[in-house]
Every structure is written in structure tokens, then in C-alpha cells.
């Protein structure tokens, strides 16, 4: 982004509107790359040129930020090892195969259950239902790589049809800004699924419950994400 000259100077002086001959020197100046003579000349110029002063003010934060990375790490550039691609492709194939096996098992289990139910109904025996779900306890979720602070808790309850996921969260943001939040379940070895979405506003607590067909031990990770899939909070059993 180029800084815009703020119009003619308030008082007449050596600065004249129009392209400034020193305009391109600001980068080298803040990086400390001007020679001592050029540096002194540029600083004399700064005293008379408001647009250049504004530009420097905009950029002044950069040297400090750049300095947080050590020079050795900054200069490192390597090529990926040739073994990496075959390894990733093998992992993709393994995950796909595992997902296929799981789908097949689910189908078989469904058929078995249907047959069993037919038998039970047929002979009129009443099956004792398993005890009700364990009480819901909330645990804190880990916070993602956020700019907005969020407190989130999660409760997990196994159910006959899958897992009930309950989330309570509060966004600490004073503005009226709203976010679209997605509740994403990552099962082990299968594709992630979104089981809910809502709109969150800073300072207003949200409580949401949703159900996923996966059992708790099949779940690898549960995340709250923004619409562009930035993780704002996560939990892993």
C-alpha cells in the first residue's frame, strides 16, 4: 500500500508537491541499508517532507518485527526430501482403505442389528435398554491461533445413535462484530463433518448441542472454526 501525500503542506517550505525524489528510499532507510552519508541526507530531507515522514511512521514497526526471527533461520531454504511425496501418497491410500473398511463394517453391523431386532420383536421378548447416558460434564477446550479471545467448554455424551456434543462458549470482544462458527468433528481415519453452525456475537454466551453418528472413541478431535476454517478452539479426547 502506498501512502497518500496529504495534499499541499500547511506552510510553504522546501517541500514541493509532486513526486518526491526520495520517495523510494524509505525501505532502505528503515532496514538500515543506506550508507552513512545517504542516511544523513535522507534524515535532513525527512525534516522537510511530511509524506516521507508519514511513510516512515507507517513502516517503523517492521524492523522490530523482522528482528524476532533470527538471521540464520530467515536465510534457510531447502528442497523437500524425495521420500516425502511417496510417504504422503501412502498415507492417503491407507486412510482411504481404512475408511472403506469402516463403511463396510457399519453396513454389516446394521444388517446384523436389523436381523436381531426382527427376531426380538418376532418372539415378543422385551430387551432391557442400556442405562441412561452418563451425566454431562463440561471440559475446557484449547484455544486456537486466534486474534479474538474465546472461552469454550465441551461436554461429550455417548448415545445409542452416536455422540451428543454440547458446547458453551463466550467471545470476549467489545465490538458488535459477529462470526459464523462451525462445529466440526474429526473422526479417526475418516473425513471431517460439520455438525452445526451458528452466529456468535462478542459478550453473548452461546450454548449448542448437536449429535454425530460417531461414537466417542471414534472421535479424534472436535473443533470450533470460523467460516474460513480458522480453528478458534479445539478439544481432543
Amino acid at each position: 500500500m502506498r501512502s497518500q501525500p496529504p495534499g499541499p503542506p500547511a506552510s510553504p517550505g522546501p517541500y514541493a508537491p509532486g513526486p518526491c525524489p526520495y520517495e523510494l528510499d524509505d525501505g532502505a532507510y528503515i532496514l538500515g541499508a543506506l550508507s552513512p552519508a545517504e542516511r544523513a541526507e535522507y534524515e535532513r530531507h525527512l525534516a522537510t517532507c511530511p509524506p516521507c515522514r508519514d511513510a516512515i511512521a507507517q513502516l517503523a514497526v517492521l524492523p522490530g518485527l523482522l528482528g524476532r526471527l533470527d538471521p540464520q533461520t530467515a536465510q534457510r531454504s531447502v528442497t523437500a526430501p524425495p521420500t516425502l511425496l511417496p510417504r504422503v501418497l501412502a498415507a492417503v491410500r491407507a486412510q482411504r482403505a481404512a475408511a472403506r473398511r469402516r463403511r463396510l463394517l457399519t453396513t454389516v453391523a446394521g444388517v446384523v442389528a436389523a436381523v436381531a431386532l426382527a427376531l426380538v420383536v418376532g418372539i415378543g421378548v422385551k430387551l432391557a435398554l442400556p442405562a441412561g447416558p452418563a451425566p454431562l460434564t463440561y471440559r475446557p477446550m484449547s484455544v486456537g491461533d486466534n486474534t479474538v479471545r474465546v472461552d469454550a467448554e465441551i461436554g461429550i455424551q455417548e448415545q445409542s445413535s452416536g455422540t451428543m456434543v454440547s458446547v458453551r462458549c463466550l467471545y470476549h470482544d467489545q465490538s458488535d462484530h459477529t462470526w459464523q462458527i462451525l462445529l466440526i468433528v474429526y473422526p479417526r481415519e475418516e473425513e471431517a463433518e460439520s455438525i452445526g453452525s451458528w452466529v456468535a456475537t462478542g459478550g453473548q454466551p452461546v450454548e449448542v448441542s448437536a449429535i454425530t453418528r460417531y461414537s466417542p472413541d471414534q472421535i479424534d478431535r472436535i473443533e470450533l472454526q470460523t467460516r474460513n476454517h480458522t480453528t478458534i478452539a479445539w478439544w481432543s479426547p
Binding site: M1, R2, E23, L24, D25, D26, G27, A28, I30, L31, A33, Q58, L59, V61, L62, L65, L66, T147
Partner: peptide
Amino acid sequence: VKSRTHYAVRALRLVLDEMGV
């Protein structure tokens, strides 16, 4: 070199803005 640093620091500033830094 001067003109590239002029544009490079602006590009960097923009990326850091985008990243929320």
C-alpha cells in the same frame, strides 16, 4: 535495490496486516 526495498516493506506490511500481526 532501493525501489525493491520500497515495495518489499509495503508488501510485508500488508501480509502482516492480513495475518493479524
